Amino acid sequence: MKQFLTAILILLLGASVSMAQTPATAKPKAKTEKAAASTGTPLKKDGTPDKRYKANKTTATEGPKKKDGTADMRYKANKDAAKKKS
């Protein structure tokens, strides 16, 4: 009986080891990465836009922001930007 349980344990251990995760495959580039590459802006090694450069930074609002990073709509500059956007 001990030999039978030991054999079952070895089989289960071998099965769990064989189901280990495999490395992720390469993902296709997103549209934003292709757009950045076609405009000639600086890119990182992985092909994404390098946010250290002004050309790659995008700001949706001009005025002050809240702590969470969203526009503070109490200010006129943010209200005007929201009107232009819509």
Rank of each mutant, 00 (worst) to 15 (best):
46 D>T: 05
43 L>D: 01
62 E>M: 00
44 K>V: 01
49 P>Q: 12
35 A>K: 11
39 T>A: 09
44 K>D: 01
37 A>Q: 15
62 E>N: 10
37 A>S: 13
56 N>A: 13
34 K>A: 12
39 T>C: 05
40 G>P: 07
34 K>F: 14
34 K>R: 07
54 K>D: 13
36 A>E: 12
37 A>Y: 04
50 D>S: 09
51 K>G: 05
60 A>T: 13
32 T>W: 15
40 G>H: 09
58 T>H: 06
41 T>S: 14
41 T>W: 03
58 T>K: 06
49 P>I: 15
65 K>Y: 08
39 T>I: 02
50 D>Q: 08
42 P>H: 06
65 K>R: 12
52 R>T: 07
65 K>L: 15
34 K>T: 12
48 T>L: 03
51 K>R: 11
45 K>L: 01
58 T>S: 04
32 T>C: 13
52 R>F: 08
50 D>F: 10
47 G>E: 12
58 T>W: 03
64 P>D: 01
49 P>R: 09
50 D>A: 11
61 T>C: 05
53 Y>M: 09
57 K>W: 03
48 T>M: 06
62 E>S: 11
44 K>E: 09
38 S>K: 15
64 P>I: 00
63 G>R: 07
50 D>R: 08
52 R>N: 12
48 T>S: 15
62 E>L: 00
46 D>F: 04
49 P>N: 08
55 A>W: 00
55 A>S: 13
37 A>W: 11
56 N>P: 10
63 G>E: 07
33 E>T: 02
48 T>V: 03
38 S>I: 05
48 T>N: 08
32 T>R: 12
55 A>N: 04
37 A>V: 02
46 D>I: 09
48 T>R: 10
47 G>R: 14
